[in-house]
Every structure is written in structure tokens, then in C-alpha cells.
Write a protein that binds this DNA or RNA. Structure first.
Lengths: 124, 124
DNA sequence: TTACTGTACCACAGAACCTAATACAGCATG
DNA sequence: CATGCTGTATTAGGTTCTGTGGTACAGTAA
């Protein structure tokens, strides 16, 4: 039942941790399209944080297209087809920048490529 | 002479923008090892921001091993051999996470690999 | 000496983050 | 209908982060 967990001692904002956690669940397939997420109040109670913080995470996840919230019903995971294109562009920039710096620091292109192949099946 | 520029309307902290800017200069080779960076006060005057903000950026870049600051002399770019290992681990995590999400969103492994190859010569 | 360098410290303002409490409307169940 | 859930919005307050402004000290070089 404890779908996600957060770390109050982390420097990253709680709402960002919540966003990342649900993105991972969706990416890994642990949360399938149309599947219901915990309600704002329920999750806030589980994590012992304020409902407003959860609401912010859900609102931003919805803006990215990862989830869809319906008043009175709940929040639900979306199919990947509905994820916003700007999210892809953002990720590509992160990818490119990390590659550039890793290559500079001595990593070989082959080593980075093999890391991509390692993602086929196991999700960690 | 304007080595870097910052955007006050950006949501990211100024000192983070400064850090990224100098990392890019070093990575691209525009700033070679032992080369001198602008002084704290000089750069602050150029960018019209507070010297303390520059100082923070320099301090953190030094902790990562990208630059070395010597009281009375100045701050200088370092050779890549002195960059901290934790920076590499951090970058690998960013790389892996972006790959996982990009693959989920429909990008093919081949497309990502070709992006790695595109970094051999041109730098942006 | 003079002028530059990095570094440290303090106080202050504004923004971001988070909490707390309340309220309203939509949906589903009995 | 009525109860209880759902998302959503609003207001207020506290804490932390970010950035500014000013001052000070020590090391380096002309």
C-alpha cells in the first residue's frame, strides 16, 4: 500500500520527490494506464505531509500528461501517448548535456551505449 | 570578455547558472587547465550581481574539482583528472534516469546512441 | 605601499517551500 | 436525498533558500 516514500532530509522539494516517484512507477509499468493513484488526502496522511504538497505534485504531473485528475473521482495514470512533447525535449537536453560531460570526463561512447542496452528488461 | 551570461528571469538560482556556464566552458575546451577565471568581484560587476553569489558558485565548482581557487592569486580551471568521482556518479544517475524515461516515451535505443556519436567533434 | 586576489561574516529583503485550516463542487454509494 | 469520498481553491503563517549590501581580513604582486 505504501506506493512511494519521501525523504524530508533531502534537499529536493517534497513535491518534486513525489512527482519523480510516480513518474518512475508509471515508467516501470508498476502503474498502468487508467490505474488509480492514491487520493490527495490519503497519500498526504500516509506520508505525513500536507495535502497541498501532494496537490501541487499531482497538478504538475497532470500538466506533463503523466496523470489525469477528475474532480469527484480521483487521479489516474495516463497512457504514454498523452505525455507532453515538451517533456521529451526537456529529457533530451538532460540526456545530451550529461553525455557531453561524461565524455569529457573520460567515459567512452561504448560504455554509455552499453548502459542504454542494459535497460531492455530489468528495471532495477 | 563576456565569458558567460545569466538570466535573472530563469527559475534556476543564479549561482547554479554560473556553475553550469563555467562547467560548459571547461568541457568545451574554451577554458583550458591552469587558465584563469574572472575574479569574483570582476565577474560580479560584469553580470551586475552580488560578489557573494559568484563566490558561492566558485566555492562549489572547487568542491567538484572543476576549478581551484588560490587566495591572492585567483581561480583557475583544473585538469579533468581532478574532477571528483562523485560528480561522475551523479552524472551517470542523471544519464540512466533520462534514458529510462526516454525509452519509455518511445525513443529507440538506436536514436539515443546516435546522439552520443554526434558529440565527437561539434560542441552544440 | 598600493591594489588586486580569495575568503569570511553579518544583516536584510524577497522568493520558494511547506503547513494549517477552511471551503466548495463533483461523484458514488446506500 | 444524504453521507462520504474525490479534486480544487483560497488564505494565512512559518521556515528555509536565494540574493543583496556592506564590511573585514589575509595572501599575492606590482
Amino acid at each position: 500500500m505504501a506506493m512511494i516514500s519521501i525523504n524530508l532530509r533531502d534537499s529536493r522539494p517534497i513535491y518534486e520527490q513525489v512527482k519523480d516517484a510516480f513518474r518512475r512507477l508509471i515508467i516501470s509499468g508498476a502503474l498502468t494506464p487508467e490505474e488509480k493513484l492514491p487520493s490527495v488526502r490519503e497519500l498526504a496522511a500516509q506520508l505525513v505531509i500536507n495535502p497541498n504538497t501532494i496537490q501541487r505534485a499531482y497538478r504538475e504531473l497532470e500538466a506533463e500528461g503523466y496523470i489525469s485528475s477528475i474532480p469527484g473521482k480521483g487521479s489516474f495514470a495516463c497512457a504514454k501517448s498523452s505525455i507532453d512533447d515538451s517533456r521529451v525535449r526537456e529529457l533530451l537536453k538532460v540526456f545530451d548535456d550529461s553525455v557531453t560531460e561524461l565524455l569529457f570526463l573520460g567515459k567512452s561512447p561504448g560504455e554509455l551505449k552499453s548502459r542504454i542496452d542494459g535497460k531492455g528488461d530489468a528495471q532495477k
